[in-house]
Amino acid sequence: MVKHTDPDMTLLKMPSLKAVKSFVAAAKYQSFTRAAEALCVTQAAISRQIRELETYLGVALFKRVGRAVELTEAGAIFFDAAQMSFVNISQAAERIRSRNAGKRMLTLCCSHAFSALWLSARLPALFSQNPDIDLNLITTQNFLSMEPGVRPDIYITKMAKIQDGYRSYPLFHDVIYPVCTPAYQEAHPELATLKGLRDGGLLNLSPYGRSQVAEHVDWGVWLAYHNIDIGERAHDSPHVLNANDYNLVVSMALNDQGVALGWNHLVTALIEQGRLVRPMAEEMVLTESLHYLTIREDREADDACCRVRDWLLGQFDGYPFPAATQLHR
Rank of each mutant, 00 (worst) to 15 (best):
V213N: 13
V179A: 03
N204R: 13
K161M: 11
Y177G: 01
E190Y: 03
R151E: 12
Q141T: 12
G200T: 10
L194Q: 09
N136C: 07
K158I: 06
R198S: 15
V217Q: 01
G196L: 06
H173G: 07
L194G: 05
Y166L: 13
L205S: 08
P170V: 06
D174P: 03
I154S: 04
L137I: 15
Q212F: 09
H188K: 11
I162S: 06
V213K: 12
L205V: 09
A187N: 08
C180K: 02
H216W: 14
C180R: 02
H173Q: 15
R167N: 08
D174Y: 06
Y155T: 03
H173V: 11
A183F: 04
L202N: 09
Y166I: 01
E186C: 09
E190N: 09
A187V: 03
L205Y: 12
Q185Y: 09
C180M: 10
N136P: 01
Q185P: 00
P148V: 06
P178Q: 07
Q185C: 11
G209D: 09
T181R: 04
G209I: 07
G149E: 05
I162T: 12
T181H: 10
L191H: 05
L191W: 06
R151W: 06
A187S: 11
I154L: 15
E186I: 07
P170A: 13
I156E: 00
I138E: 00
L203Y: 14
P152W: 00
D134Y: 01
D164I: 13
Q141K: 11
G200R: 01
G149P: 03
E147Y: 05
G200C: 13
H188G: 10
V179F: 02
K195E: 15
N142Y: 04
Y155I: 01
P170E: 05
G209V: 10
T157K: 02
D132G: 05
V213G: 12
G209H: 09
P170S: 10
L205G: 01
P170Q: 07
H173C: 15
D132H: 08
P189V: 02
N204V: 15
P148N: 12
M159T: 08
T140K: 07
P178D: 08
A160T: 04
L203E: 12
P148H: 08
A192I: 15
N136G: 02
S211T: 09
H216S: 13
I154R: 01
T157A: 13
D132F: 06
I162H: 11
D134M: 10
K195V: 14
R210W: 04
T140W: 01
V179W: 00
Q141V: 07
P178K: 04
L202A: 14
A192M: 10
D153E: 14
D164G: 15
V150T: 11
L203G: 09
T193G: 11
K195L: 14
H173N: 15
N136D: 11
A183H: 07
Y166W: 06
E147M: 10
K195G: 13
G200M: 02
D199N: 14
Y166H: 10
G149V: 09
M159K: 12
L194P: 02
V179K: 01
Y169V: 14
T140G: 05
P178F: 00
H216Y: 10
V213S: 14
T181Q: 08
L144N: 06
T139N: 03
Y184N: 01
V179P: 00
L135K: 00
A183K: 12
L144T: 07
I176Y: 01
L135D: 00
G209E: 08
V179Q: 01
A160M: 08
A160H: 12
S211C: 11
